[in-house]
Design a protein around this nucleic acid. Structure first.
Length: 489
RNA sequence: GCGCCCGUAGCUCAACUGGCAGAGCAGGGGACUCUUAAUCCCAAGGUUAGAGGUUCGAUUCCUCUCGGGCGUACCA
């Protein structure tokens, strides 16, 4: 008989005896972590006067004849339960020692420290709350099969405390971001996920269909254009933490759906946004981790602001030897870049080639926080040109750990120029570039009413969480990453 | 999409050059009233991801399929 079958039999037996192990409630359990703290100074043999109620999952059982130790796990900590025949009586003790690993129970009794120094609860009473019908992963090695970890994340969370911790940190990161943005006078908004024109980024989108309206819709690829409409409407500082969907490859840094923080701040420019971005990341790290010095793979990363600001041109020149200002024509650029070993595909524009230089030669080097500033206009259809150099726009990207974390710019507010840029994009799309954008007439109309100058920001929350939890894969910070379904039979 | 690697008991892993599929943990029975990877004794647990092929014989070699990981491409 398999273990699952044996557990099922135990359940049937309990139910037939009128002692169902599924209970509706267990009021007022205390968190274990504060309990451990409160009695940390107890000596061996010392026992609390009052009883404490705890609840959680049985992780380990050690049976010693007429006494049994269980290890109980709640969301924040583990505590040992000590039950013996003197305290519980013969019948109840029998039930206690036959609890299974994986069962969820509530228990009550004084806290004491054992002879071997373990803070424990002397169980006076206990109650099964839910039966575990499946065996848990092994207590020592945990669960390592990555496929099972992703498909049955709850098992991963039960078996691997560090996984539990990483997602706890992610939650705290989101809370800290909201606190930071709110303190700076931003308000949080929610904008449509399903859109008629997916805009605000260059990316392939997912399509869906609305039956009643019989129309195709796109899942959003960015938040930006709707936030700007809100600037037109008079909200001067807005942000959204939202899920974005991009129909592209999956890798250790890419999941088809991911979370971005985007914001718009009226009367600010990209210099203000740079300051905000480094302050935000530093604030979050201090709030959540208590430090600005973090480990990333084999390196130490110092998040302390201000972060270096280097132009795209000088960084590419330094790391690849190519000064893109010397090759304003695509043909010359292609020839020069070909010498570096990059294969320039026929469809690549001048801007795309520059972008390739960035990702191949520069990006992997930027382990310490770094802002790259001043991007070519061609790569940035929504950004405002620099006053002194119309080839470039007021845009920066923030890098940490060799990953792009942030992409921000002074927004283009001129509707005439914006229309021209959209039309450039539409032409690229006509030519077969599925990532290029479309002309968003509705957005242009909004701009024509007048949008204040603004500094816009996009921050990749998943990647920030990777950095803050030292996770090598984006799947380590996404609870339920996309997987192919298992084939039936 | 392409390339490389992986899939053995519920979990973690063995199995030499192709020769009877094993162990620890978990689970079952037993001993043990302060253990903590508890310990000790006994018994049980398998369509080796799936399908086909080569062979006297396949976990092992070959082909295909499914799923996963990593790299690469696209991208953030």
């Amino acid at each position: 008989m398999s273990e699952a079958e044996e557990r099922r039999q135990k359940l049937d037996r309990l139910v037939s005896e009128g002692r169902s192990p599924y209970r509706n409630r267990f009021p007022g359990p205390e968190q274990v972590a504060p309990l451990l703290e409160r009695y940390a100074s107890f000596e061996s043999g010392e026992k609390s006067k009052e009883n404490h109620r705890v609840a959680g999952r049985v992780m380990i059982r050690r049976e010693h004849g007429k006494a049994t130790f269980l290890v109980l796990r709640d969301p924040g900590a583990r505590i040992q339960l000590y039950g013996n025949i003197n305290e519980l009586g013969e019948e109840r003790y029998g039930e206690f020692k036959h609890l299974d690993i994986g069962d969820i129970i509530g228990a009550e009794g004084p806290v004491f420290r054992t002879r071997r120094g373990e803070l424990s609860i002397l169980v006076k009473d206990f109650i099964p709350l839910a039966k575990g019908l499946h065996p848990l992963p092994e207590k020592w090695h945990g669960l390592t099969d990555v496929e099972v970890r992703y498909r049955q994340r709850y098992l991963d969370l039960i078996a691997n405390d560090e996984v539990h911790q990483a997602f706890y940190i992610r939650s705290r990161v989101l809370t800290a971001i909201r606190r930071f943005m709110d303190a700076r006078g931003f308000i949080e908004v929610e904008t449509p996920v399903m859109q008629t024109i997916p805009g605000g980024a260059t990316a392939r989108s997912f399509e869906t269909h609305h039956n009643a309206l019989d129309m195709n819709l796109y899942m959003r690829i960015a938040l930006e254009l709707h936030l700007k409409r809100l600037l037109v409407g008079g909200f001067d500082r807005v942000y959204e933490i939202g899920r974005i969907f991009r129909n592209e490859g999956i890798s250790t840094r890419h999941n088809p759906e991911f979370t971005m923080l985007e914001s718009q701040q009226a009367y600010a420019d990209y210099n203000d946004v740079m300051e905000m971005t480094e302050q935000l990341v530093a604030y979050v790290a201090r709030e959540v981790l208590g430090t600005l010095e973090i480990s990333w793979k084999d390196e130490q990363v110092d998040l302390t602001p201000p972060w270096p600001r280097l132009t795209l041109r000088e960084l590419i020149k330094e790391h690849s030897g190519v000064d893109f200002r010397e090759y304003p024509e695509r043909a010359a650029m292609k020839a020069r870049v070909g010498e570096t070993g990059i294969t320039v595909e026929p469809g690549w524009s001048w801007g795309k080639i520059v972008d390739e230089l960035l990702s191949t030669f520069v990006e992997p080097k930027l382990i310490q926080p770094t802002f790259i500033i001043d991007f070519p206009r061609e790569l940035s259809p929504l950004a405002r040109p620099k006053d002194e150099d119309s080839m470039l726009v007021e845009r920066f990207e923030g890098f940490i750990g060799g990953m792009e974390i942030a992409n921000c710019f002074s927004e283009l507010t001129n509707p005439i120029e914006q229309r021209r840029r959209f039309e450039e994009q539409a032409a690229l799309r006509e030519a077969g570039d599925e990532e290029a954008g479309l002309v968003d007439e509705d957005f242009l109309t909004a701009l024509e009413y007048g949008m204040p100058p603004s500094g816009g920001s996009g921050l990749g929350i998943d990647r920030l969480c990777m950095i803050l939890t030292d996770s090598p894969s984006i799947r380590d910070v996404i609870l339920f990453p996309l997987l192919k379904p298992e084939k039936q039979q």
